[in-house]
Design a protein around this nucleic acid. Structure first.
Ligand SMILES: [Mn+2]
Ligand SMILES: [Mn+2]
Ligand SMILES: [Zn+2]
Ligand SMILES: [Zn+2]
Lengths: 132, 132
DNA sequence: TTATAGTTTATAATGGTTCTAAATAGCTGT
DNA sequence: ACAGCTATTTAGAACCATTATAAACTATAA
């Protein structure tokens, strides 16, 4: 019920799989960061039926395109996604590969003075790498 | 001659291949950004003998570990490297996947107020994504 | 020189991601 | 409810950047 309209309004059919993935991604106290593998595991833990890996990829990319998920640029062999779609920045713990949200007040506003002809800024992302 | 000491001082034997890769990477007017594929092509263009792809990977990773190259975090299936090892930030042109250096004066100093227990900041990188 | 450890290389393996094409399921109009 | 249409799911194959392997080669120091 909760996510049917959200999906329909986005032109995505509210399939059983998508609704279940919505539960895992969005029906949470807090936003979180994940790789596809981690999401696959979370889905296995929370639901009984199986969702194929291809569907997980398809759904994550569909949600990203609709703006319900963001990709976070990090140097890793795996792609990191974020259910927090507000503009915000990250700590990246090199030891365990985990991301931590930074509040905007922890970073301060970033004002890019230089302009590139015919281009506009889509996003500004700060990545703060942490080591021991 | 130019790079022999640099390599020796880093504990890396100055092999023919490494010296040639040094020429391609560091004997330039300007610093530049590259993927391994792009570097492989550049090497093919500039030298006569063949250097195996494995050696290119090995050398780039060795140079990165020694601090002669930096990895730039972007969302791409390929890893981006930078011969500019100073602290600086980037525009990322989504259209063609090219990086452009930002001067620090174009961004201003970034002061991270939050601290994580037992961790220290290794780097702070700003990525500004550009679209049309 | 010779011994040794470091390096290069072709090639295979790995693994995250994307593709394929057939089966299934949601939707719209009747 | 049904038919027809299109979107979606799925298992499995393919893709491809990167890493591992192990044998041949090379820089270096004794
Ligand atoms: Mn991707
Ligand atoms: Mn890498
Ligand atoms: Zn986040
Ligand atoms: Zn740069």
């Amino acid at each position: 019920m909760k996510y049917i309209d959200k999906l329909r309004n986005s032109g995505l059919r509210p399939t059983k799989q998508r609704l279940q993935i919505c539960e895992v991604l969005f029906n949470t106290e807090r936003t979180f960061h994940f790789t596809i593998n981690e999401l696959e595991q979370k889905i296995k833990d929370k639901i009984d039926n199986k969702i194929s890996l291809a569907t997980i990829y398809n759904t994550v990319h569909a949600f990203e395109k609709k703006g319900y998920l963001k990709q976070i640029p990090v140097n890793s062999n795996q792609t990191y996604f974020d259910t927090n779609i507000t503009d915000h920045h990250h700590f990246y713990n090199l030891k365990d590969g985990k991301l931590i949200d930074l509040e905007n007040s922890d970073v301060g506003p970033i004002n890019i003075k230089r302009k590139i002809d015919g281009k506009k800024i889509k996003s500004i992302e700060v990545l703060v790498k942490l080591e021991d």
